[in-house]
């Protein structure tokens, strides 16, 4: 019998898999990882097929699974793309900017820890380096979301976008306590921008989306929703 216990894959033996459920061999910290629940589902699906006698493969170990999945995380790429766009925008003369028109000289910081209810990391914090005299520097935060919203019905879309906007405001808006060394302290965030990835992930009906955007942007103060 092949156990494959040292290779990248686990055995396809049902009794072995049952005796070694994912949580039993989980390395420290794995169970808190965002991909862990997906990994557990993957293991369960593979085990179910093997139990039915389907000639399935032995599943990947957690380490290999994590490494593989980590190379194709869409949200991470979108975030990198947006940060690059913001940096390019910041370098333009103010009148030509698309995103950062309200800043004289914007400085862009990424993954900035801030506490309100609990510790969260804002994707981007923009700080005014040349505030008008006597004024505290303007600060804005950005939250990027790579969410497939193409097939959501109108109420589901509304509920999702409201939850995202409320969440962005709660964690990265109003008054926050910045934890990044050198920037520490209580500051007022003038505006939170919630930016969704567009393209094929965007809802396809323009009118439906526009109605929601109008309602969100017109009626939730301090947060602005956009599609890229």
């Amino acid at each position: 019998m092949e156990w494959e216990t040292t290779g990248p894959r686990l055995s396809r033996d049902v009794s072995f898999l049952k005796e070694h459920p994912p949580e039993r061999d989980a390395p420290p910290g794995a169970e808190g990882h965002p991909l862990w629940t997906e990994y557990v589902r993957y293991r369960e699906a593979r085990l179910a097929e093997l139990e039915q006698g389907t000639p399935a493969k032995g599943p990947l170990r957690w380490e290999g699974y994590l490494d593989l999945r980590g190379q194709f995380i869409r949200g991470l790429l979108f975030e990198q793309l947006m940060v690059a766009k913001l940096r390019a925008d910041a370098a333009l003369p103010r009148s030509q900017r698309q995103w950062l028109r309200d800043f004289n000289q914007p400085r862009i910081e990424t993954h900035v820890g801030m506490t309100k209810a609990d510790l969260r990391f804002a994707d981007v914090l923009v700080i005014e380096m040349k505030p008008a005299s006597g004024q505290p520097p303007r600060m804005e935060t950005f939250s990027f979301k790579s969410r497939d919203m193409h097939s959501l019905d109108q109420n589901a879309l509304r509920t999702q976008m409201r939850a995202d906007a409320n969440g962005a405001l709660r964690y990265y808006g109003e008054t926050v306590n910045i934890r990044r060394p050198g920037l520490e302290g209580l500051v007022r965030i003038q505006r939170v921008r919630l930016v969704y990835e567009g393209g094929s992930l965007k809802p396809s009906d323009v009118k439906a989306l526009q109605l929601l955007m109008k309602a969100l942007n017109g009626r939730i103060k301090g947060v602005e929703v956009q599609f890229q």
Binding site: R9, E38, R41, A45, R46, L60, R69
Partner: peptide, 20 residues
């Protein structure tokens, strides 16, 4: 080859359940 193929399953099992 079987290992390579299993990696596609691991990559896509959530968005494309039929990959199993």
């Amino acid at each position: 080859y079987a290992y390579f193929a299993e990696r596609l399953v691991a990559l896509l099992h959530t968005p494309v359940p039929s990959v199993l």
